[in-house]
Simulated scan of single mutants.
Amino acid sequence: MSYWRERAASAIEQAISTINVNLENLSEQDKQQLKCVIDAAYPFRTRKNHPYQIWLDERQKAFERLGIINERLRRKSTASSIAIARDLTVPGQQSLF
């Protein structure tokens, strides 16, 4: 694990441990509170470049693990970006020819 990934994962875990909620059964309010606490725990100076990208990746993994964001939605958006990268049409996109 890289230095940036370890620091990001550690900061997220520390932020989660500060909240006194039942992680097995989160209400919408608990999910929103966890999101805010995790976002506030950003351990690096500026939100740009490689450390920020690693932070976003670790944040996404934590959100999926906690059930804050559905993993299925992430896969759907990834599939659309892959289609664009391969120069294929995206579902719902009109063809020029």
Rank of each mutant, 00 (worst) to 15 (best):
D39N: 14
D39H: 10
D39F: 04
A40M: 07
A40K: 08
A40Y: 01
A40N: 07
A41H: 03
A41I: 02
A41R: 03
A41K: 02
A41D: 02
Y42E: 09
Y42A: 10
Y42T: 08
Y42G: 08
P43D: 06
P43T: 07
P43L: 06
F44N: 07
F44W: 05
F44T: 01
F44R: 03
F44I: 04
F44Q: 05
R45K: 09
R45Q: 09
R45P: 03
T46D: 06
T46S: 14
R47C: 05
R47I: 06
R47F: 09
K48L: 11
K48V: 11
K48Y: 15
K48D: 14
N49Q: 13
N49P: 00
N49T: 10
N49C: 08
N49D: 15
N49G: 11
H50E: 12
H50Y: 11
H50T: 12
P51R: 10
P51T: 08
Y52D: 14
Y52S: 11
Q53S: 10
Q53P: 00
Q53I: 01
Q53A: 13
Q53W: 04
I54M: 14
I54S: 11
W55L: 08
W55M: 10
W55G: 07
L56C: 15
L56H: 07
L56E: 15
L56K: 15
D57R: 14
D57F: 13
D57S: 13
D57T: 12
D57G: 09
E58H: 10
E58F: 11
E58M: 15
E58I: 08
R59V: 02
R59E: 12
R59A: 07
R59N: 06
R59T: 12
Q60Y: 03
Q60T: 14
Q60R: 15
K61S: 12
K61R: 15
K61N: 12
K61G: 04
K61W: 07
A62M: 14
A62S: 13
F63E: 09
F63D: 02
F63G: 00
E64D: 05
E64S: 12
R65Q: 11
R65A: 13
R65M: 11
L66T: 01
L66R: 03
L66I: 03
L66F: 02
G67V: 06
I68H: 04
I69S: 10
I69C: 08
N70T: 04
N70H: 06
E71W: 00
E71D: 00
E71N: 00
R72D: 11
R72T: 10
L73Q: 13
L73P: 00
L73W: 12
L73A: 08
L73M: 11
R74M: 05
R74S: 11
R75I: 02
R75Y: 00
R75K: 07
R75W: 05
